[in-house]
Amino acid sequence: MEKQRATVRLAVRWGIVTLVAGALVPLAGAAPAAAEPGCVDETAPSILENGCDDSTPPDTTLAASTTPNAAGMLAVSTMTFTVQPQVSDADAGPFGLECTLAGGPQAHDWRTCTSPVTYADLPDAPAGTYVFQARAVDLGDAGRNPDVNPLLPPAVADTPDLDPTPAIVRWGQDTRAPFVFVTSTSYDEITPTQPVVTGAGVPIRLNSSEAGSTIECTDNGRPVACSAGRWELADPRAGRHRFAARAVDAAGNTSAWSEPVEFFVPRNLARQRGWTKVRGAGFFRGDALAASRRGARLVLPRTMVGELRLIAPRGPRHGKVRVRVGRRAWHVVDLSGPKAALRQVVVIDRYSGVRSGRIVIESLSNRRVVLDAVVARPDRFPAATRTDGPRPSR
C-alpha cells in the first residue's frame, strides 16, 4: 500500500512539472500572449489570452484668459488657463491634468493641476519669459503596464498614457504705461509758444520712455501717421494747428496724450488780376505773387483777425502796399530796403483787438512788390476744452 502511495505522489509531481513546462514553452508555431494595441483600456495578458494596450493617448485643449499680442506680450500680471482633456476614441477615463510653468518666481516642474489654473502677481518680463504647458493624463491606464507578466517576456512597449505633445502658451508682460515726449523745434520770436511755420514741413521730435514703443499722433484731433525720433508733419494746411502724441509700448499700454504743441501755417496766395506768379525755392510753398502797377489788389476771404502779418521779400527797388481788414483803417507797408529774403512783417499786432472782414492788399505804386503769404489769426488761441485724442467718427 505504501508503495502505491509513493507512486501516486511521484505522478502528481511530474504532472505539475509538465504543466509548468507547458506554460513556459509555447506550442510550436504559436506566438506568446501579449498586449495588443488599439484598446480603450489596459489589461495584462494571461497565459492563454492576449491583453489590451490603450495605444491612443488623450489630447489637451488649452485657453488663456488673455491672448499674447503679435509681439508675444501682455499688459496684465495675472494669467488663468482653462485646460481640458480630449479623446478621439471611446475611452471613458478617468482623466487628469499635469501642468508646468517656466520663468519667474512661480516656476515649477510638472505637477498635478486642476482647471482653471491661475498665476497672479507675475513680475514684468520680456517676451518669451513665461512658458506654461499642460497635458492630459489617462488616470485609468497610467498605473498599469499590460505587458508585465512574470511568466512571459514583454512583447511590445507600453504606449504612453499621457499627451505626448502638451498644449503650450509663451508670453512676456509689461503692466506699466510709457511716457511720451514731444518737442517742437519751430521758433517764432514774436509768438514763441504759437510759432508761425513757413517751411515745407513742421519739424517735431517724438520719443518714449520705453524703447520699441510706437507713437500715435493727432493734428487738430485727426490721426496722422508719425514715427519716433526726428519727424516732420509734411505740407500742413493753412491755419491753426494743435498737435499731440502718445506712446504705445510693446504690450499695448498707452501713455496719456501729450500737452498740445501749437503752431500756425500761413495762407499761400492765389493769383488774382494784376498779379503774376513767380516761382523760387526760397518761397513759401515754392511760389509768390508779384505786381508792378499801382492799384493791383488781392482780396482774401472774410476772416477773424487779431494778428496780421505779410510774408514778403525786400529789395532796393521794391514799392509799398496798403492793407486793411473789413472797413477798418489802411495800414501801409514799405517793402523797399536792402535786399533780403522772406521776412514776416507785422501789420496788425496781437494786442490791437479782434476785427473781421475781407483782407484787402493793394499796391501803391508802379514799383515792383512781391508777396509770398499772409498770416491772419486771432489774437490768441482758444483754451483747450478736451484731450487731443482722435475725433470720433460720424
Rank of each mutant, 00 (worst) to 15 (best):
V345L: 15
D235Y: 10
V332Q: 14
F263Q: 03
F381M: 09
A228H: 03
A44E: 05
Y351K: 14
A281D: 11
R380Q: 13
F179K: 09
T66Q: 14
R368V: 07
P58E: 04
R350F: 12
E42A: 15
V17T: 07
V12I: 14
V321E: 02
V299H: 00
D141V: 05
P382L: 13
R205P: 03
L151F: 14
P37T: 02
D161P: 01
Q84M: 12
L342I: 09
P126W: 08
R302P: 04
V83C: 00
A290M: 11
A6D: 08
H108F: 09
P123H: 13
P153Q: 14
T114R: 10
V323S: 06
C113A: 11
G357Y: 00
V346L: 14
A44K: 05
F284H: 06
A288Q: 07
R297D: 08
E98Q: 15
D124Y: 05
M304W: 07
P338D: 15
S213H: 03
V196S: 09
A75P: 05
T18F: 15
S186T: 06
F243D: 02
F95M: 09
L62Y: 09
A23E: 10
A225D: 14
G93L: 02
R13Y: 10
R111G: 11
G22Q: 09
G38N: 06
V346F: 09
S65R: 08
V131T: 12
P203T: 05
E262A: 13
Q84W: 01
A244Q: 04
F181K: 05
Q272E: 08
R230M: 08
F95K: 01
Q133S: 13
I204N: 01
P105V: 09
G282K: 13
D89A: 07
V278L: 04
T129I: 09
E36D: 10
L269I: 11
P178W: 08
G286S: 11
S65K: 10
R144H: 12
R314N: 00
G29I: 07
G96R: 03
R314Y: 06
R368I: 07
R327Y: 09
S184G: 15
S255I: 08
Q84A: 14
